[in-house]
Design a protein around this nucleic acid. Structure first.
Length: 477
RNA sequence: GGCGGCAUAGCCAAGUGGUAAGGCACGGGUCUGCAAAACCCUGAACCUCGGUUCGAAUCCGGGUGCCGCCUCCA
């Protein structure tokens, strides 16, 4: 049974969808004006794990994640570069897709762009105006929050208090400082679309309401995003959607915590961010994915290179067990000695996505398996049990997806979901040759030469292991 | 000013009423030509002060520190 922390009720609740088998899930995507950083990666991975878990549990998940492809920052960037906003959007949508693929993020069922949904957006704005929830002033259309009684419920904000100490700048067109723009009159030279209020473009919040309603219907099972979106973005989505449809907008609101560095939120404006692409030049994507799930999704995730490196060592341990199992001749026998099965892991993750606890079980399991093999007791039943768990890790967590030799031999720039070796062939041959030389020296008891070669390789980050079945090598980072 | 979150060993991180998972690092051992890996053993933690309770890291209240939202933000 899956339970999720619901920000709407501020407590952990048993999750069940409206339809027995079908889940409608919407996650706010990125505004495409720059490369994504680890904060975006975290959000993407968290909701990818949730989506994969739901599918693992047997649900059909209709998953929508949008691209905001028209907004002030995109317009600004386009004018700086002297190109059209479409070109900027196209470039960074491509960049996002590349990052998502590297990180094994499963593609959403739908990835709508705001500019492809203008008619639905205009339609919803019109409905809001017709119903008296919106007013137009000089080409702009605003949402009238005073008309929506439960405004502030999700974020726990009190409108009066917000007004009193707020930093919201005064816009004289607005009836209330917190009223927000649904349709924005375009300035000259800006992209524009026809509407009943004149030429303009959508405000930010309305696109999510229009898209989700159009693609998923009036009521969602799950709506996700970073916790910075709770207010005002998600608050406004609720107001717009419920005002327009008259139905509850979403049952479960799920938000991921920030990636922090040096104790501060990682963000563009603080210039303390690492892009996904920069990181993946240095470490395997699976290592980043593992790192991102070592902390519960709602807690702040402290990013520092020291701990990212430790994630590699931890995965080495798991892959080491996988490799040992591959080479081990399992004893026949129905007896399963392992004390942990895949259900135990599923149970942990089903508890509000407690990935760290699930990973903890994985290491317990690894020790048990290693120990059984040391004692020659690892059975075929044990192997089956272990295989099921590895498959779950691969399918849902997105780790342990490759073969151990791929992991150990080529740990950089490997597409996470591919077993292909990337440009390491000549280096591998070189290493194999040196290993042969060293083993010849060992046969002749020339240990000085053998150790010289070992040192030579270890200086290049290649560690040798002499085992009963021969010498193995792996690269360390 | 308003609202909210967090504080667990050297570092990271679970646990949310019954006596502290896990990973990395450290120490001792087994194994090894030497290593590595693995296994075994070991040490080490619940910010502070009160309260509730037979019993609190876990609940309540005060304090301190840090962070977030209230403006675009994953």
């Amino acid at each position: 049974m899956l339970s999720l922390y619901n920000d709407l009720t501020r407590k952990k609740e048993k999750f069940y969808p409206i339809d027995k088998k079908k889940i409608r899930m919407y996650v706010c995507g990125v505004t495409v004006y720059d490369d994504c950083h680890i904060g975006h990666a975290r959000s993407a991975v968290v909701f990818d794990v949730l989506r994969r878990l739901l599918e693992y549990l047997g649900y059909e998940v209709i998953f929508v994640k949008n691209f905001t492809d028209i907004d002030d920052k995109i317009i600004k960037k386009a004018s700086q570069e002297g190109v059209k906003t479409e070109q900027i959007a196209e470039r960074y949508i491509k960049s996002y897709d590349e990052d998502a693929e590297s990180l094994s993020i499963k593609a959403p069922t739908y990835s709508p762009r705001a500019t492809d949904m203008i008619s639905q957006i205009v339609q919803m704005c019109k409905t809001l105006e017709d119903k008296g929830f919106a007013y137009s002033v000089d080409g702009d259309l605003f949402f009238d929050i005073k008309k929506f009684k439960s405004y502030g419920r999700l974020s726990g904000k009190n409108i009066v208090e917000l007004e009193a100490g707020s930093r919201v700048e005064i816009n004289k067109k607005k009836h209330h400082p917190l009223d927000f723009v649904l349709w924005k009159k375009s300035k000259s030279g800006e992209p524009k679309w026809q509407s009943p209020w004149g030429e303009g473009r959508p405000g930010w919040h309305i696109e999510c309401s229009a898209m989700s309603t159009f693609l998923l219907g009036p009521t969602l099972d799950i709506h996700g995003g970073g916790e910075d979106l709770i207010f005002p973005h998600h608050e406004n989505e609720i107001a717009q959607s419920e005002a327009a449809t008259g139905k509850p907008f979403c049952r479960f609101w799920v938000h991921n915590g920030f990636v922090v560095t040096g104790g501060e939120k990682m963000s563009k404006s603080l210039k303390n961010f690492w892009t996904i692409k920069d990181i993946l030049k240095l470490i395997p994507a699976e290592q980043l994915r593992y790192f991102l799930i070592t902390t519960k999704y709602r807690s702040p995730l402290k990013f520092n290179w020291d701990d990212v490196k430790k994630a590699k060592r931890a995965l080495d341990r798991l892959y080491g067990t996988l490799e040992r199992i591959d080479e081990y001749q399992a004893k026949s026998g129905e007896n399963c000695h392992l004390s942990i099965n895949v259900e135990n892991i599923v149970e942990k993750i089903s508890d509000d996505l407690n990935t760290p606890a699930a990973l903890g079980l994985l290491f317990d399991l690894s020790r048990e398996a290693n120990s059984l093999m040391e004692d020659g007791k690892f059975s075929k039943a044990d192997k089956q049990c272990f295989d099921r768990i590895v498959k779950f890790c691969s399918d849902v967590l997105g780790i342990l997806q490759m073969s151990p030799s791929t992991w150990f031999h080529n740990t950089i720039n490997v597409p996470i979901n591919s077993d292909q070796k990337a440009g390491m062939v000549s280096k591998e041959e070189e290493i194999e040759t040196m290993i042969k030389k060293r083993n010849n020296a060992r046969k002749e008891k020339n240990f000085k030469e053998a150790d010289r070669i070992r040192k030579l390789l270890s200086d290049k980050g290649i560690i040798l292991e002499d085992t009963a079945t021969g010498t193995k090598w792996k690269s360390i980072n």
